[in-house]
């Protein structure tokens, strides 16, 4: 599909069009940080930022999500019958989502939309009704390493439209039929615009200097990697909080809880974290991941060994949030590079 362009001064016109058919959310400034928020058509949109503090995964997979409700009264004929939650009411659009965060949704499709039999209806409903308009990364953070995990500052995977900030104007690249129809009214890009965007892509990629390697991890069998001696040290400073998992755009584990108050009950799912001992605690009292080492190993093995082996995708987009938010500076890049080291040297 051919590239388009829009002057930033005219961006509100595009925004109006988007907002007519979608609930639009975008990164907005909140003090020193950038947060996701509902935006109105007349709102000034931010284009100068690194990335949002939190990933936008909550729009498709909320931290707390009601799945069903029920009347907690077995004497009532209507009691104890689970009532399904209605789906999302309209369409939502995530504007200026970073390419890494958009790709994370494609990775999560492998989990939540694996096959018809195990389709996660709550995810699918929102996924099918969400449009992603991405903003390419100009100035990657020192913790970013998207280029070494099959992603990148201009990655197009999962996006309907990619925007590239060219100063006073934006290059608009429709990537799907939805993207094409949303941008149909815009002018064609000048050849110079596309060239400038390509140069920006090269510069952004070059700015990412620290990456990871996975050749050995890929080549080894699972148990060999599982027994890698690096795991004897990596966990030591970990405090087993859930920060990395909650900020991660691809972490997707959840717990299901029934909550009741008087005669009303609801079934909710909430983000869970493999860092917590409770995550794998059995009712028998046995815990297959009873120690800190087991839990830390699980998180990295899951993303960099089990998911690549099982689904053919790395369970990480290199956004660097786990590293920048970790209270004890566990750096995912160092961990994966240690996992990739030769064993027995």
């Amino acid at each position: 599909m051919a590239d388009k362009r829009i002057d930033k001064a005219d961006f509100h016109k595009l925004l109006e069009k988007l907002a007519a058919e979608h609930e639009v959310f975008a990164p907005v400034r909140d003090g020193a940080s950038m947060v996701w928020s509902r935006v109105s058509p007349e709102q000034e949109i931010e284009f100068e930022f690194t990335n949002t503090d939190s990933s936008p995964k909550g729009y498709l997979f909320p931290q707390t999500e009601r799945l069903m409700r029920f009347k907690n009264d077995s004497s009532d004929p209507q009691g104890m019958i689970m009532e399904e939650e209605p789906g999302i009411s309209g369409k939502q659009l995530l504007l200026n989502i970073r390419p890494c965060d958009a790709k994370a949704f494609s990775i999560l499709d492998h989990i939540f939309e694996r096959d018809e039999r195990t389709m996660d209806v709550y995810w699918k409903d929102k996924r099918d009704n969400t449009v992603l308009v991405g903003l390419a990364c100009k100035d990657p953070c020192p913790t970013c390493f998207c280029t070494s995990v099959e992603c990148g500052p201009h990655s197009e995977e999962g996006l309907d439209v990619l925007l590239v900030d060219l100063g006073d104007r934006l290059l608009v690249r429709p990537l799907t039929d939805t993207g094409k129809s949303l941008t149909a009214d815009l002018d064609q890009a000048e050849p110079g615009d596309t060239e400038e965007a390509a140069k920006q892509k090269d510069a952004a990629e070059a700015a990412i200097t620290q990456g990871i390697t996975m050749e050995n991890i890929r080549a080894r069998n699972v148990l060999e990697e599982y027994e890698h001696p690096c795991f004897d040290r990596i966990f030591e400073s970990c405090i087993n909080c859930g920060t990395c998992t909650f900020y991660c755009p691809t972490c997707h584990c959840f717990d299901i809880q029934d909550e009741t108050q008087e005669d009303l009950g609801k079934r909710i799912r909430v983000w869970d974290t493999c860092m917590s001992w409770l995550f794998t605690q059995h009712t028998s009292g046995h815990n297959p991941r009873g120690g800190k080492k087991d839990r830390v190993r699980q998180r990295f093995m899951h993303k960099f060994k089990y998911m690549p082996d099982k689904f053919g995708v790395i369970g990480c987009v290199g956004c660097g949030r786990c590293t920048s938010k970790c209270p004890v500076n566990i750096d995912v890049r160092s961990v994966v590079n240690s996992m990739d080291e030769q064993i027995g040297e």
Binding site: S54, Q63, I239, N240, C241, G242, T243, T245, F246, T273, S276, P327
Partner: peptide, 8 residues
């Protein structure tokens, strides 16, 4: 966000 980093 209930990550419990403060507690841990």
């Amino acid at each position: 966000i209930r990550c419990y980093a403060c507690r841990n």
